[in-house]
């Protein structure tokens, strides 16, 4: 099977004398559910930027093998929300529809069908009654759900989520993971999270990013593994790593 995304020996960073990612290799196959973990500043966001085409790597290659032919690839992206979004005058439904922008191009109008599709997605995350509200009127968790709709409206082949559990309220968090499990039947998912304990039961494999990337073909996380792979994330201070994760190793 061909990987959808393939990174080969990628070196990347923001200034040439400071490399953030070193010799990173990663292959993403259909139906993968990869948890991307690692310390702050370890390069998780940089890795996402490289995959999303927002950052040109210094060297190495990134290839896409997707069915879609529009650039850069058929990726769905859920970024972390920033506070500046709150004051922007834009309707919730328009935010969702922006997920189709790449397919629509510069001047094509949105059809009634597509608007209906956006509404259905909003209904799906229980926000349909806010379709015509301004995005700033929603709470952080609600905004994140809107952004999730935006990320999946295009039926992406790979869904990339950056810390989705940061703002999502506890009530929706469980639903979010059920939803992701459901979506995973149709698409590969890359999930960046610092909350290792919570995600370990959903993800299938782990990629630990700390300058270099270590791929771990299991969802079991233990301190030994993390140490071996030089992945200093704070398991203990999180305090609630599920039992089965620990004794499985």
């Amino acid at each position: 099977m061909e990987p959808i995304i393939k990174l080969t020996d990628v070196y990347a960073g923001y200034t040439p004398n400071k490399v953030v990612l070193k010799q990173v290799n990663l292959e993403v196959y259909p139906h993968d559910f990869i948890g991307i973990i690692g310390p702050n500043g370890g390069g998780k966001s940089t890795l996402l930027k490289v995959i999303l085409g927002l950052l040109q790597p210094f060297s190495g290659s990134i290839t896409f093998n997707t069915q879609q032919n529009y650039a850069p690839a058929n990726l769905g992206y859920l970024p972390q929300i920033s506070s500046s979004d709150k004051s922007f005058p834009i309707k919730v439904i328009d935010v969702v529809l922006s997920g189709m922008m790449g397919k629509k191009g510069l001047i094509k109008r949105y059809t009634r069908n597509e608007k209906e599709q956006a509404r259905e997605l909003l209904h799906f995350v229980k926000l349909d009654k806010y379709a015509n509200s301004a995005i700033g009127q929603l709470s952080g968790g609600q905004m994140q759900r809107v952004y999730l709709c935006r990320a999946i409206i295009n039926n992406p082949e790979v869904l990339i989520l950056d810390e989705p559990n940061n703002f999502v309220d506890k009530q929706f968090e469980g639903e979010l993971y059920n939803l992701l499990t459901e979506l995973n039947k149709k698409m590969a998912i890359l999930l960046v999270s610092h909350d290792v304990g919570t995600i370990s039961s959903f993800i299938k494999t782990i990629a630990c990013v700390n300058e270099s990337l270590h791929y771990h073909n299991t969802n079991k996380i233990s301190e030994e593994i993390l140490k071996t792979y030089h992945c200093p994330i704070e398991l203990i201070t999180h305090g609630h790593v599920p039992h089965r994760v620990l004794h499985n190793h």
């Binding site: 979004d85 922007f88 328009d94 922008m101 510069l106 001047i107 295009n154």
Partner: peptide, 22 residues
């Protein structure tokens, strides 16, 4: 009128808009 959505989406979230290929 013609470029309403591309302009709106780029202004709202340029980084995201770029990932859609805009």
């Amino acid at each position: 009128l013609v470029f309403y959505r591309p302009v709106l989406y780029t202004a709202f979230d340029a980084e995201y808009a770029q990932t859609t290929g805009l």
